[in-house]
């Protein structure tokens, strides 16, 4: 299958360097300390943050100089085409949880909350490619909503290669399964640091550079969208208290 037509459009009508439509909302729940809902195209994710709070369960897990980050990734049984058996706890979900923690730990200022714990739960409501990325982005929003100090936005984006030459950004499920190798990057877009990099197949070295560049540019674009959403959210929340809010 050709992932990109002669007219330069992808199967869903995007151009190679275009992201899917992003829609998000902060503070969707009252119970957790912070929460967010994020859609990237048809991939829809809820994230909730609890904490910082005392260590739950065994006290021995507590770290004396920083907070313990606990992540849980789960997929709703109705999130995929075929109904899923186990929403969490399978190998893939556990791996995802670990990767999530790795990414988020890099931006949370954990040293401020020694001997405490921060729980981050993400739930994929609908999966259409780029699940990990959407989860990272949603978790970042939820952390911001919870007011937990972070050094920078943590944003993730995927990229792939169509017909062995054209890099595609933010790939959908269809492109993920029928295309070439997929690259997932979690990065801090302002400082340009890469926290996590994952490839689904072998990449020829010639292509890695340009695909990575596109994925990073995707991260930056996502960051811009998220940033605007955060500012709008704060503005609307503050409006109730007559805050003067200036956009810069």
């Amino acid at each position: 299958m050709d992932l990109i037509s002669d007219q330069g459009l992808r199967l869903d009508g995007r151009r190679p360097n275009e992201l899917r439509k992003i829609r998000c909302k902060l503070g969707v729940f009252n119970q957790p300390d912070g929460s967010a809902y994020l859609e990237q195209g048809n991939t829809k994710v809820l994230a909730a943050v609890y904490g910082p709070h005392e260590i739950r369960g065994s006290r021995t897990k507590a770290l004396h100089d920083q907070a313990l980050i606990n992540c849980q990734y789960s997929m709703a049984t109705f999130s995929t085409g075929e109904r899923k058996r186990r929403p969490r706890g399978d190998r893939k979900s556990i791996e995802m949880s670990i990767h999530l923690r790795q990414a988020l730990q890099a931006v949370i200022k954990t040293e401020l909350y020694a001997r405490s714990q921060i729980d981050i739960f993400v739930e994929v409501l609908q999966a259409d490619g780029g699940n990990y990325c959407t989860c990272v982005n949603a978790a970042t929003l939820a952390l911001i909503d919870a007011g937990i100090p972070i050094t920078e936005y943590m944003v993730a984006c995927t990229a792939s290669l169509a017909n062995g030459e054209t890099p595609l950004v933010d790939i959908s499920h269809l492109e993920e399964t029928s295309g070439g190798p997929n690259l997932t990057v979690a990065a801090m877009p302002m400082s340009g640091q890469i926290v996590l990099l994952e490839m689904s197949q072998r990449f020829h070295l010639d292509h890695l550079d340009k695909v990575m560049k596109h994925a990073l540019r995707g991260c930056q674009e996502i960051k811009a969208v998220l940033d605007k959403a955060v500012r709008d959210h704060v503005a609307s929340a503050g409006a109730a208290c007559n805050w003067e809010f200036k956009t810069d």
């Binding site: 869903d12 009508g13 899917r20 439509k21 048809n42 085409g81 259409d128 674009e221 811009a224």
Partner: peptide, 27 residues
């Protein structure tokens, strides 16, 4: 950023699966 998109869904039925795909319309 992305300019404009009215966002539509296009469904395609396989055997049992229901596949939902995005379909972007452009200006």
């Amino acid at each position: 950023m992305l300019t404009t998109k009215t966002f539509l869904k296009k469904t395609k039925r396989g055997n049992i699966l229901k596949i939902v795909r995005e379909h972007y319309l452009r200006e």
